[in-house]
Amino acid sequence: MTLAQNAAPQLQVAQQSLDAQHALPSGNKMLCSVSAGWASLMLRGYFNPPEMEELTLPATPDYHLVLVRAGQGHIESHRDGRWRGGEYRSGNLGLTAPQQATRLRWRSEQPHQTLHLHLPLSLLISVHEALGPGALPLADLPNRLHHIDPLVGAVMTDLERALALGAPDLYAESAAHLLASHLLMPGSARPHLEAAGGFPLALQRVEEFMWAHLPEAITLKQLARVAGLGTFQLLRAAKAQWRETPMRRLTRLRMESARTLLGRSGLPISDVAFQCGYSNPSHFATAFRRQTGLTPRQYQRQR
């Protein structure tokens, strides 16, 4: 066997991705695929503190995917001059496109676990060329704080298990090509309704959109477009599965977010109202009292 055959494969992810861990709180890393000799991608697992006032993850050339493995909490990203976000739960994904920095803050009752996956830019370019003209442009890769993709979540979870079992880089390489092909296929950012039995996936997509756009004015027509349904179809599907209309569910999610935000000491009620989609604090107070039986001020004092 030659010296070249004996040499460990060269890690394909960028040095900036290797260095990104330094932006995270020290002492919370659970696992890392680099030490296992994986070269085709980089997978890291973390325990995250319950609260982070602000954290900036630097831009890297690679595609950065974060999967919530356990726990839940309220997370926000800063874009276009303001904070926006919603609840994070197990199974939720955050996607950061190449060369995009991320400014975050979060709050939860307990520490939560996340998996961080870096897909090398060189792999994305290679797969994009192999897929041909029909592939999603690299510049259009999803860049979202809240995303749900069962296939991506399942592959990342399997990679975590394979790493613990000592799987070789061949396993990681196969998974990396699958993920890159899936993400670059047109429509992967918005899975087809048939993939999960029709309406359930459509409604999952609608709820994901609600969480990601809580501060904004949202209409039933918008939600129908997100679902890929007509407005009457969406109403029937929501009442069948959620037992409530889409707009009533949106209000309930906003109130859930409001309860979390009001738990933050000193956060003005007007700011909470704005982040939950209410430009008028009195309208917010009315909706909150209708849902909880308390005014926002009373609820804040109890916390």
Rank of each mutant, 00 (worst) to 15 (best):
L178C: 11
V127M: 08
V127L: 11
L124I: 14
G153I: 03
P137K: 09
H213K: 09
A176L: 05
F199T: 13
I125W: 07
S181G: 15
L170G: 10
L104I: 09
G187L: 00
T114E: 12
R205C: 00
E129D: 15
L165W: 10
A130P: 01
L201S: 05
L159V: 13
A164Q: 15
P133E: 15
M210C: 12
H192Y: 03
E129F: 13
L145G: 09
S126Y: 04
A175I: 10
P150D: 02
G94C: 13
Q204S: 12
L117A: 03
G197Y: 02
G132Y: 09
G132F: 05
H128N: 07
G132C: 06
H112M: 10
S181P: 02
H147D: 05
S108I: 01
R105H: 07
T96M: 13
A154S: 14
H147R: 02
L145M: 07
R205Q: 08
E109G: 12
M185C: 14
L93M: 05
F209C: 12
A180Q: 03
S181E: 15
S126R: 15
P200D: 03
H118A: 15
Q204F: 08
R205G: 02
E160H: 02
G132W: 07
G153E: 05
L163E: 07
L121K: 08
E160V: 03
L138R: 06
Q113R: 14
H147Y: 04
F209R: 14
H118D: 15
P137E: 09
F199P: 08
L178V: 14
R205T: 02
H177D: 04
G94A: 15
A139T: 13
A212D: 14
P98I: 15
N92G: 02
A167Q: 07
E129N: 12
V155K: 00
A202T: 01
L95A: 11
S188D: 02
R89Y: 08
R190E: 04
Q110P: 10
R107H: 00
D158I: 13
Q204R: 14
W211G: 06
Q204C: 13
G132A: 05
A139D: 15
A180R: 00
L93E: 01
A139N: 09
P186A: 03
H213T: 15
P191V: 00
A130I: 04
